[in-house]
Deep mutational scan, measured.
Amino acid sequence: CHSECLGNCSQPDDPTKCVACRNFYLDGRCVETCPPPYYHFQDWRCVNFSFCQDLHHKCKNSRRQGCHQYVIHNNKCIPECPSGYTMNSSNLLCTPCLGPCPKVCHLLEGEKTIDSVTSAQELRGCTVINGSLIINIRGGNNLAAELEANLGLIEEISGYLKIRRSYALVSLSFFRKLRLIRGETLEIGNYSFYALDNQNLRQLWDWSKHNLTITQGKLFFHYNPKLCLSEIHKMEEVSGTKGRQERNDIALKTNGDQASCENELLKFSYIRTSFDKILLRWEPYWPPDFRDLLGFMLFYKEAPYQNVTEFDGQDACGSNSWTVVDIDPPLRSNDPKSQNHPGWLMRGLKPWTQYAIFVKTLVTFSDERRTYGAKSDIIYVQTDATNPSVPLDPISVSNSSSQIILKWKPPSDPNGNITHYLVFWERQAEDSELFELDYCLKGLKLPSRTWSPPFESEDSQKHNQSEYEDSAGECCSCPKTDSQILKELEESSFRKTFEDYLHNVVFVPRKT
């Protein structure tokens, strides 16, 4: 048989008469490798580009789960590009990614509803959504962080984005990388972005840091009482949809009607710091009717980097990364020049730590249904340095008659930039024990000054392991946590139920 035959053949030295091919099969003959313009397919066939392209389009058009959109890589027609490569849609070739590779997620039936953290986790790592997304989240724990972890990498949506009755959302900033909504599939009414009845939605994105392009379709905003109209108009300008909307697409009466839409800028007039305090004062603000001013709200939190936005980490279910302080308005003076500047002394802060701070007014709604208010920009203030805590785990070892090696770990709280350490030492008198000992005694162990690591005695271990207080009263049991108490109650309830079950099964009433 021919060298490319495997198993047997019907005619000697003829690659077209093989029972099976050793390498690849091409047009009725066995070959060692697939010549151009053919590609290896499933490690035994040679196919042309049209064959591989037909497989790709067949799966793409069917949208069946589990099928493969075949691509070409290293002269092979394979189910998908290997790690580190992405497909070129024009020629199906796998090309190296520039940075992290995109991950295209194809949605069944063309859309997916995100109504819980669990459903959001199914899209973790996706960068391109081939379909439409509907966000409908009523509640949950730590929602802002969970949504950002699972949806934060999405850069492109081919269909539309719909935010509907998501009472738990305060902001859409968890879509931190969303840059493009194509609108290839539109919501009824030709809408590519749809926001309806979101009672706590206050911000779409921080438009000073976020760009969003909507290729096709219109915007729809109705019944978002805490979303200011200025935020919607800003989205029109940034996304390129200005002029597409009709009169009733953006409701003037049901958007922002319960919001404090600040239209003035508060400026800080005085800032002073110490290692654990920050004193702030800002310019006074009074609405047209000074009785509408209820006070100020001061927001602050630790910020290692200057990239904080107002609604980071917030949701309507209680999660809030900001510390909020309510401040009463100052006494009002008739003389504008003698107006008191409101302020606040922030206490209990960490030394040498940068804080993000902003302040906003708290006002009631005027009778004319106009909203007044003022808010400052987010500023960054760093507390002063102070003395560091003591170095940890000092170790001293003498390696000769004239040297001592000293080692330690950095302090747990540096409280500033540590530039150097101060080492103090003092000579001590020799131990009298060394002169009084009889060095001729056998088995004498000389006193040693070398360091030995501390260890816990058996008594201390027994005390720590004991669940009861000892007789001397030195140790006591740790208080039980809520989960331990709940577990004990469940076990007790189970024992009672099981005992009742045994009584009912074992003891049967005697027939009379």
Rank of each mutant, 00 (worst) to 15 (best):
A385H: 03
L229P: 04
P304F: 08
L201W: 01
L107Y: 12
S319N: 04
K112T: 14
R369A: 05
D384S: 05
G189W: 03
P388I: 00
L143R: 07
R138D: 03
I278Q: 00
Y223A: 08
R124Y: 02
K407V: 03
N200T: 02
N334S: 12
I357M: 03
T361R: 02
S208Q: 14
K242R: 14
Y167L: 03
D384V: 14
L161G: 01
W352G: 11
A303E: 02
P330E: 14
N130T: 11
V238F: 15
D335W: 14
D292T: 08
A251R: 06
V324K: 02
T383Y: 00
Q382I: 03
L153V: 15
D197R: 05
K301E: 06
F275M: 10
S260K: 03
F311Q: 08
C261V: 02
V128K: 05
V128Y: 14
Q121S: 03
P394H: 13
A356K: 02
W344P: 03
G152I: 01
R247P: 07
T353F: 13
E264W: 01
N307Q: 05
L293R: 03
H341P: 14
L362R: 15
E156T: 09
R347W: 08
C317K: 01
S338I: 06
S239F: 09
A149D: 11
G243P: 01
A251L: 10
S400K: 05
T127L: 09
I114V: 07
K209H: 06
S260T: 08
P288T: 09
V308S: 09
V359K: 01
K209Q: 12
G295R: 01
K267S: 13
G373Y: 04
S119R: 09
S173L: 09
S208M: 10
V324R: 04
F175E: 02
F221M: 14
A144T: 05
G243A: 09
S333K: 11
E155M: 04
F175N: 01
H233C: 04
G243E: 09
N130L: 13
C261G: 02
L133M: 08
H341K: 10
G373V: 04
W408T: 01
C261N: 02
Q382N: 07
I188F: 07
I157R: 00
K350C: 06
C317E: 08
H106F: 12
H106Y: 08
L265Q: 14
F268V: 07
I154T: 08
G240E: 05
D315W: 09
R182F: 13
H210Y: 14
V117C: 05
E236F: 05
S239H: 05
C126M: 01
G295Y: 06
L186T: 15
Q382A: 08
F175C: 03
K253L: 11
L108P: 14
Y380M: 06
